[in-house]
């Protein structure tokens, strides 16, 4: 039973981790919490489904197409709203409200033009299940786990191994200095938004397949939780986001079954509060030195 709960929790956690990376990346370069990320996650899932239902062509092709559109939405969020605000030297709070506005727009768009009900989602990665001891593991869980792992390695390579990643890290350390060094700061930020939207879209589609359903309100609560995961791990840190996501997923699963299911969201946040009281910068966050 414990093993089963652990597996459930890890699946949930790896999904959280994937979305949390998006938060962390954006936060790193812009010091802004992107409230629209949850909605973009939901949009990604819906887009794959809608394209697939409409054209009835290869699922993977629809998936790829949806990711491109999703990335474009992320790009628009930055290009047509946040970049504008940066030029006006607006406070971070304004950016935050703008992302909330985007979240409202995306959710209502999906409600109006896709569906206002909970709709079924085809599970294309269901190849049966096998058991480890008393626990049942489905192929969906295994594939989700593998995909997250691969993407993680890929993201680590992008951030720590490529020129784009180097630029990203430079911008997140000091945007002005990076600009002076000839880095296209706006380009880097746009790239980050696209990456984070694509990651959210991948998670949206996989969660849709895992639960075999999707609805337009599903972004908000997962958005909150993944935000918590990103902070728990230490914002701006990739391994932090992953660890945070996994911890929140497992704690939620175990808490829901061993203590009370009605408090499941509370466990996630309780862990978060306890951790950041002792480690004010999260698990992997670096202490920021404030200078006058």
């Amino acid at each position: 039973m414990f093993l089963q709960q652990l597996i459930n929790g890890l699946t949930l956690g790896s999904i959280y981790a994937l979305i949390a990376i998006g938060y962390s990346l954006v936060f790193g370069v812009l010091q802004i919490v992107n409230f629209a990320n949850g909605s973009i996650y939901m949009l990604g899932g819906f887009l794959t489904l809608v394209l697939y239902n409409k054209f009835r062509i290869n699922f993977l092709l629809c998936f790829a197409l949806a990711l491109i559109i999703n990335g474009f939405v992320g790009f628009c969020l930055d290009r047509f709203a946040l970049r504008h605000l940066r030029q006006k030297k607006a406070t971070k709070l304004v950016g935050l409200i703008t992302t909330m506005g985007f979240a409202t727009v995306i959710e209502n768009f999906v409600m109006l033009f896709f569906s206002n009900a909970t709709v079924p989602y085809p599970n294309k990665i269901d190849f049966g299940s096998f058991s480890i001891g008393s626990a049942v593991v489905s192929s969906t869980q295994v594939i989700i786990f593998l995909v997250v792992l691969v993407l993680l390695l890929l993201m680590s390579w992008v951030v720590y191994g490529t020129k784009v990643g180097k630029a990203m890290r430079a911008v997140s350390q000091n945007a002005d200095a990076a600009k002076l060094m000839g880095i296209d700061v706006n380009g880097v930020i746009a790239m980050t938004f696209i990456l984070s939207a694509v990651l959210a879209g991948i998670s949206g589609t996989m969660v849709g397949m895992y639960y075999q359903m999707i609805d337009f309100t599903s972004g908000f609560s997962i958005g909150m939780k993944t935000m918590a995961a990103a902070v728990l791990g230490g914002v701006g840190s990739l391994p932090g986001a992953v660890t945070g996501g996994l911890i929140i997923g497992v704690v939620e699963s175990l808490g829901a079954s061993y203590i009370s299911s009605a408090y499941r969201n509370a466990f996630a946040f309780a862990v978060l509060i306890i951790v950041i009281l002792f480690l004010p910068n999260g698990l992997f966050g670096k202490e920021k030195v404030t200078k006058v």
Binding site: V33, A262, G282
Partner: peptide, 21 residues
């Protein structure tokens, strides 16, 4: 005692916990 967004997220957690209670 926390900095910026850490504090913000903490209040978010507080709100959720109070609501669940």
């Amino acid at each position: 005692k926390l900095q910026g967004y850490y504090m913000t997220i903490l209040t978010l957690g507080f709100c959720e916990i109070v609501r669940l209670v």
